[in-house]
């Protein structure tokens, strides 16, 4: 389980990105983090694995306090947290398999990884995971030869290969079309259920979040302003998170046309929300 206490981040520019955030994510829970651009969603996720160094506060994963770790210990802790990125962040000139196996880097010594001699169990796991995300036939393709959805699947497989306890997911669908977005979100949530993984998913598409997650946390200007089930997102709450806007269409849509695959409509809504 992930526990965040009083997490604060002030950038060198003076911007306060996170303001004493308290949050708890129990094992196996998939949580969406929503909020306007600049609310601190990305910062929050990156403070958890300390890609961004927090200014104050504590982050605990299980019984490890991440915020107190030395560099070496931090590397060991990062293995336990798989990360999935908005722009996929695959190493584009490496093959699919190399990208997936790079999830094992924390477990493998330098020379083995340099020579691409990964332990057989890791290779097995990589094949298995690629099979699971539906890319078994793309193994030796270069990452930059894949489509957006396929790339994100590679990104997911890489994160899974770390055998993590929690997934940190940063805007997984922002670079994808509406249909692929749904597929990717569904895949992430299914995988979390299968492996009993917790997940923190940054997402700006509220409808998409509501469809798949068990819990929604709303962030505004670095503070938690909403924490509850997806069904709790009414116009009043959305206004609290995003500011004044006519939310009626969002609310009615959720009740009325849920599950309908109206891509064009989806896209238009997304444009309205950001």
């Amino acid at each position: 389980m992930l526990r965040i206490e009083g997490l604060t981040k002030r950038y060198r520019t003076g911007d306060l990105a996170l303001d004493k955030v308290d949050l708890e994510v129990p094992g196996g829970q998939v949580m969406a983090l929503i909020g306007p651009s600049g609310a601190g969603k990305s910062t929050l996720i990156r403070c958890v694995n300390r890609l961004v160094e927090p200014s104050a506060g504590r982050v605990r994963l299980g019984d490890t306090e991440i915020t107190g770790l030395s560099r070496r210990e931090l590397r060991r802790a990062r293995r336990r947290m798989g990360m999935i990125f908005q722009e996929f962040a695959l190493v584009e000139r490496l093959t699919v398999m190399e990208n997936v196996l790079s999830g094992q880097l924390g477990h493998v010594g330098f020379w083995r990884s340099y020579l691409r001699r990964f332990p057989q169990p890791a290779v097995d796991a990589a094949y298995q995971t690629l099979e699971r995300v539906g890319l078994a036939d793309q193994i030796d393709k270069r990452a930059d030869a894949l489509s957006g959805g396929q790339r994100q699947r590679v990104g997911i497989a890489r994160a899974l290969l770390q055998q993590p306890e929690i997934l940190l997911v940063d805007e997984p669908t922002a670079s994808l079309d509406p249909k692929t977005s749904r597929q990717i979100m569904r895949l992430i949530c299914e995988l979390c259920a299968e492996r009993h993984l917790a997940a923190v998913i940054n997402i700006h598409d509220v409808q998409l979040a509501q469809l798949f997650v068990q819990r929604v946390v709303g962030l505004r200007a670095g503070q938690v302003v909403f924490d509850g089930p997806p069904s709790g997102l009414n116009p009043e709450v959305l206004t609290r998170i995003y500011g004044e806007e006519d939310w009626t269409t969002a609310a009615t849509r959720r009740k009325g046309t849920d599950g309908g695959d109206d891509d064009a409509l989806d896209e238009e809504r997304m444009a309205g929300i950001v």
């Binding site: 990062r78 990125f85 330098f110």
Partner: peptide, 19 residues
């Protein structure tokens, strides 16, 4: 981003360089 992703897997400095 690509460098950040490799760092996030818990890779060492040398591994980040190579991957």
């Amino acid at each position: 981003n690509q460098v950040e992703a490799i760092t996030a897997t818990g890779a060492s400095g040398g591994q980040v360089l190579v991957y």
